[in-house]
Nucleic acid binder design. Structure first.
Lengths: 179, 179
DNA sequence: AGAGTCATGTAACGCGTTACATGATTGT
DNA sequence: ACAATCATGTAACGCGTTACATGACTCT
């Protein structure tokens, strides 16, 4: 599923500008997808040409015209077709975990720093994004936030309970290098 | 952290061929990174030119010469330098979660299928990869496998406990479409 | 005064995948 | 017979990011 298709999906939830679609990526999809303006705007332009969406320009003062996109029946068909494909394996790229894999090459304080930093991000999510289920949310939205929360809680607990394994590892290497 | 740097990291654990590096990606890094031959082989060739690794060819019968790569002191320095940078935010791309976000457009059986399929993958990991800590493993390797296991367990439990939210959502849409 | 928000777009570039090319050996 | 494993490599292509370009309005 490319960014293009996901933009189409976002438009099934309601009309939006490119700018608003970007915000949706940041706010609702951020823990399982992301996209930049450089991919969103060209995608919308192209899909307009292809008749999957249509665009209504709204003049504004002191700003570029706001372009509100709406999905067309052809666009909806195209999106449903994409949803009928089997989802591909998740693609994950975690520099955090990659670095921890080499914790034997790091100082104990560096390992501690990496983990503390991550725990802070995880806690921030749990405290701010999670738990604030509003009326307007669909079940799917609640489900996804709850999913993120469950994963983050598991991660937090695991890091707290097992960080000593890596901190000991780093300590050992530091000792053997010194001795 | 690009594939190139990660290959260098893998070589800090011991000499290896491109083929073996690929296997390492599949077996040890698969839940937080992946790489294809098309990125590994050119990376090794380039790093050889740059003096970050060196290459010893071993003639073989009926097969291409095996090229065993070893990291050089310059390569080790370069990798340590990469480890000193702050890790960037994880990049995740989950078609599974993206599809669930649009579960209101899917039939209940389709939603159930997607979740069942995912649960199978998760269970497979928990039953096969997790829990088999051997003697030869470093603490970092145990930590990472344990991490994966913790996350997968949380995911499994969450899916089992909350799938009804999405299955109900889909059911509702199906009804309203029919009615 | 400076950061953040609203608002769109393009061009160059990087990085990696996919598919192709080759081919023996071993297990089912 | 067929698939998998071992083993390396290239070229085309896709997809997306980064950086640049522009500019007003609002909050601190």
């Amino acid at each position: 599923m490319d960014i293009r298709t996901l933009c189409l999906g976002i438009l099934t939830k309601g009309d939006a500008t490119g700018y608003e679609i970007k915000k949706t990526f940041e706010q609702e999809l951020s823990h399982f997808y992301d996209a930049s303006f450089g991919s969103i705007y060209p995608a919308l332009t192209k899909m307009t040409e292809e008749g999957l969406v249509n665009c209504t320009e709204q003049a504004q003062e002191g700003r570029p015209d706001k372009k509100v996109y709406a999905i067309t029946p052809a666009g909806r068909m195209s999106f449903l077709d994409a949803l009928s494909k089997e989802p591909r394996k998740d693609k994950i790229r975690s520099e955090f975990l990659a670095m921890l894999m080499f914790s034997d090459l790091l100082s104990p304080s560096r390992v501690a720093h990496l983990i503390d930093r991550r725990l802070k991000e995880v806690d921030d999510f749990i405290n701010h994004k999670a738990g604030c289920h509003t009326e307007a949310m669909t079940n799917a939205e609640k489900f996804l936030i709850g999913f993120g929360e469950a994963i983050y809680r598991a991660e937090r607990d695991y890091l707290n309970e097992n960080r000593h394994l890596l901190e000991a590892e780093a300590l050992l290497s530091a000792k053997s290098a010194a001795g």
